[in-house]
Nucleic acid binder design. Structure first.
Length: 828
DNA sequence: GCGTACCGGCTACCA
DNA sequence: ACTGGTAGCCGGTACGCG
């Protein structure tokens, strides 16, 4: 076995064509020859072109003997050469920067044992708003993974602080801070620039959404740092990424500020400055500043010790063979796949160089357009309360489809040509893949899953569940799982070298086909499918049955079907029996509740799971769910009584401030709201943004308050008159006790109402809501009474209920159809 | 003049 | 720079009725 070189980091110098390799032995500068690849056949067919380039001293060649030619080019001249070759033949891996070429070709593995320095800076805070780098850094605190603490402060000589910090950084391998990518490092870099101190990073703009997190805050326009010669991990960023699905946690922390997170996770707090500014602290209370600054980094380290954020990240990058600083999904998969392909003796396509379309789409107003091709299929749910529901799901659906149908660019045939149908696997979309030669992507996925199985079934068995080794192995297998699942994603990403619409959509539509086919099979056996989404099916029956036996039956049907109908590879696609539910309530697509036989309650998609739900609405919804799941007899009249009781609560003014406060987040800076939409229409400004705009103007002079109204902050507000757009909603701090009863009634009741409507469709649950009195005198009198009478009359006839139901569903179907884009037609 | 249907933006979820 | 599908809220606008 070759001894792999353990690396800390690497980067390159394009001018000198050298790679800087940072290992425990230091930083070595290594000259490296850059190349791209072409197919040997293509090269032979255009011998003249290459001879010409060779004569002009631009290129050199190496025959890899595997059907590929390496074309060596001086890195600086690559564009000249490529513009001549690209129009004539397909080039492979021509987009790799030098360091990446090196990383993929040499035997390198990430060093897992790296010295970590948790750090935090404090800056003057005299001016309003926080613009990183605009004010003096007064102190920096740090702690390393061996618990050594460091602190340096100097209000007269900022340069000294920076020099001290750079020296400290060089004694460690990883810098880690809280929101340091968007703040601390930006500030340090700016201040270093001011004193012409070298700090190995550059400042760029956020180009995409702030991944994970309290979902996507677009940070376009804001700056961040791209570290180059040192490793950096933004703990906040990574924490968001790892926990963004944990709505319980997010609801608890509300914001990802260090104070909020450490108080929830550690039960510890930042030092309370009681309104004192850093400016004053630095000058008058240096001891308190030191304590404050150090406490932050202690919290950082404790958070990481508890959550293993950096450890998990190191393992993830080690598995991918990627640099620490390349943290995007694509940035991690790409080196892994390139390396695997090289080991298999093949090469991957270059990134599409015509990105015009993509760039246009990205720059098109605020976001990218979604829905370039069809995705998963969602069955129309049979709404209501069901008993004995069994859930089945496909095991890793998309990776399994890739293996089953051999989905890969190098095994894909645009047409049959002179091949025999027996040599082909046919997708339900009609796409053809080689039956004989396994493509690179399925091979890679197979390797990934084999390694994951090896870890889970062999390695992990050797250790106790609470041991360090076990945990590390767990992170390793998880990294493999994520890798396997991301392969489909990059095949659908138009900027990537793996992109092919036909393949990405082939995978999703095959998923649709399989889900529908299995559903039909189950229904053919007399069972009822009540719902299904992408890879899952929920099944019930009037008679008791053994779900395991059914799963077996389905599986053998599936294998036969795949082989006979598509000539596909057997044994990869399996439908698993997942769980059974005593009671199961289907409210809408992607919204359901189930109670398993063990008494575990699973709530999916409902308002109780959403962080923008009013606490009162959540409380009511929980009450309803509990009653529906646990009442011995579920009687409609009880729920009507329940609703009437709640009605009183709201209209008698019993709601308290905490029941009324909405928390909505500013998704962008206040100035950026409004404007004109695609169709030349004005984009309405949401209520919470209107409040923020107003208050921002009002508090123009107050420093600390302004930060409350910048992108990402939550605005707490109460609605006192829904119809008054200008003054109808107020900041929670200005709440005096008055609220819009009608508005809050529906805000609290509607989420529960929708469940009740699903379970008892025969009753008109809107009837409970009183008619809202009209504002002007003319409107309050006779017409409203007449209307209400008319309304009640209409509602009570069974036909009208039927009609309303139909209208609603047909309407939503219509919208769905218009929303749906062009699809491949599946021939079945 | 008023009420409603419809549409697009937006957020937050599910897979 | 991983994907699409969906509910539900909101405000603006077009349109049809009286």
């Amino acid at each position: 076995m070759n001894q792999m070189t353990k690396f800390i980091n690497l980067w390159d110098n394009k001018k000198t064509s050298t790679v800087f390799l940072h290992t425990k032995e230091g930083i070595k500068e290594i000259p490296y020859k850059w190349y791209f690849c072409v197919k040997k056949d293509d090269a032979v067919n255009h011998r003249k072109l290459f001879e010409d380039l060779y004569d002009r001293d631009l290129v050199d060649f190496e025959d890899e003997k595997t059907g590929w030619i390496k074309v060596y080019v001086a890195y600086q001249k690559k564009e000249n050469v490529l513009t001549e070759i690209r129009p004539i033949m397909t080039t492979y891996e021509d987009d790799l920067p030098l360091w990446k070429r090196f990383l993929v070709d040499e035997d390198l593995e990430l060093d897992l044992d790296q010295k970590i320095l948790y750090f935090d800076i404090e800056t003057d805070d005299l001016k309003r708003g926080i613009i990183p780098g605009s004010e003096r850094i007064v102190s920096i605190a740090a702690i390393n993974n061996e618990n050594e603490e460091f602190f340096y402060s100097d209000i007269k000589n900022e340069k000294k602080i920076l020099e001290w910090f750079i020296d400290l950084q060089q004694k460690h391998h990883i810098l880690s801070g809280w929101h340091s990518e968007g703040f601390d490092l930006v500030a340090i870099k700016r201040r270093c620039d001011k004193y012409e101190l070298p700090f190995g990073c550059m400042i760029t703009e956020w180009s995409a959404k702030d991944m994970g997190g309290l979902d996507s805050v677009r940070k376009t326009g804001k700056e961040r740092v791209r570290p180059l010669t040192f490793n950096h991990i933004d703990l906040m960023q990574k924490m968001k990424e790892l926990h963004y699905r944990d709505t319980e946690l997010i609801k608890k922390v509300r914001s990802f500020g260090l104070e909020a997170v450490s108080s929830v996770i550690l039960g510890k707090h930042k030092v309370d400055l009681k309104g004192e500014t850093i400016y004053n602290l630095a000058r008058k209370k240096p001891d308190l500043l030191k304590e404050y600054n150090l406490q932050d980094v202690r919290l950082l380290k404790e958070l990481d010790d508890k959550l293993h954020i950096i450890r998990q990240k190191l393992i993830e990058h080690w598995v991918c063979g990627a640099r620490i600083n390349d943290y995007t999904s694509h940035g991690k998969i790409d080196p892994y796949a390139l390396r695997e392909a090289r080991k298999m003796g093949t090469r991957l396509l270059s990134k599409p160089n015509d990105l015009k379309e993509f760039v246009e789409r990205r720059d098109d107003d605020r976001g990218k357009t979604k829905g370039d091709y069809a995705g998963g299929y969602v069955f129309e749910p049979i709404k209501g309360l069901h008993q004995n529901v069994h859930a089945f799901d496909f095991q890793s659906l998309y990776p399994s489809i890739i293996k089953t149908f051999n989905v890969s660019l190098d095994s894909y045939y645009e047409s049959l040509g002179d091949h025999n149908m027996n040599e082909m696997i046919v997708m339900p979309t009609g796409a053809l893949f080689s039956k004989k030669t396994q493509g690179v992507i399925p091979k890679i996925i197979q390797n990934i899953l084999d390694q994951r199985d090896q870890i889970r079934k062999v390695e992990m068995m050797k250790y106790k569940k609470d041991s360090e080794e076990y945990l590390s192995l767990h992170y390793r297998q998880y990294a493999f799982k994520v890798l396997a699942n991301s392969m489909y994603g990059i095949m659908g990403a138009s900027f990537s070298r793996y992109y092919k619409r036909e393949l990405a959509e082939g995978i999703t539509l095959t998923g649709q086909y399989l889900l529908k086919t299995v559903s039909e099979f189950i229904e053919g056996k007399g069972y009822t499918r009540i719902y299904g989404d992408t890879d899952s099916l929920f099944v019930t029956s009037k008679v008791l049955f053994d779900p395991n036996a059914l799963a077996q039956e389905i599986d053998s049907f599936l294998q036969r079907h795949l082989e006979e109908k598509f000539n596909a590879n057997k044994g990869h696609l399996h439908l698993n029996y997942e769980a059974s539910y005593k009671r199961f309530i289907l409210v809408a697509k992607k919204k359901y509740i189930g109670e398993t036989e063990k008494g575990e309650i699973k709530i999916v998609g409902l308002e109780v799971k959403k962080r923008d739900t009013l606490p009162k609405a959540e409380q009511w919804q929980r009450e309803i769910i509990d009653l529906l799941l646990h009442s011995k007899q579920v009687s409609m009249n009880n729920f009507i009584d329940w609703a009437k009781l709640k009605l009183g609560e709201v209209f008698e003014g019993k709601l308290k401030k905490e029941d009324l406060v909405f928390q909505k987040r500013l998704s962008r800076e206040t100035e950026d709201y409004g404007g004109t939409g695609k169709n030349g229409r004005k984009i309405p400004i949401p209520r919470h943004a209107r409040i923020a705009i107003k208050l921002k103007e009002k508090h123009n002079e107050s420093i600390d308050k302004l930060n409350l109204y910048s992108a990402g902050s939550y605005i707490p507000f109460v609605i006192i008159d829904e119809e008054d757009m200008e003054n109808g909603s107020i900041h929670a701090d200005e709440f005096k006790g008055q609220y819009d009863t009608y508005y809050y009634w529906s805000a609290c009741y509607d989420p529960s109402k929708r469940i009740l409507q699903a379970v008892f469709p025969e009753y008109d649950w809107d009837k409970i809501t009183p008619q809202k009195p009209r504002k002007t005198r003319a409107r309050t009198t006779t017409p409203s009474v007449n209307q209400q009478a008319l309304r009640l009359q209409q509602i009570h006839t069974p036909e009208s209920i039927q009609e309303r139901g139909n209208r609603v569903s047909s309407k939503s179907n219509d919208t769905r159809k218009t929303v749906c884009k062009k699809k491949f037609i599946i021939p079945f």
